[in-house]
Amino acid sequence: MKLTIRYFAALREALGASEALEITDGATVADVRAALVARGGRHAELLAGNRPVRCALNQAMVPETTPVTDGAEVAFFPPVTGG
């Protein structure tokens, strides 16, 4: 299935604002993150498991165990600092 990946803040600066990702059915947000890490380079460095990365699925914060669906928008970003 096809996903749109979006990045914000420091991740956006390093990886770009968005990209497409093809992933197998049944994948979770954690699988998506792992697939991006597998690309190596800056992706591997910035999305590694020990990095403080938060995620949203279709514009709602979710735990990484959440399954993704075809056409979903998955976003990765640093801890939020508004207010």
């Binding site: 914000f8 803040a9 420091a10 949203a56 914060m61 640093p78 939020v80 600092t81 508004g82 207010g83």
Partner: peptide, 26 residues
């Protein structure tokens, strides 16, 4: 509402300092 917003609303601050720009830590 402020406590909620500070930790759950997707905003990110970047500061400009004499050492350059830096993203603010949560």
């Amino acid at each position: 509402l402020m406590d909620y917003l500070k930790t759950q609303a997707p905003f990110w601050k970047k500061e400009t300092t004499p050492e350059g720009a830096r993203w603010v830590d949560a």
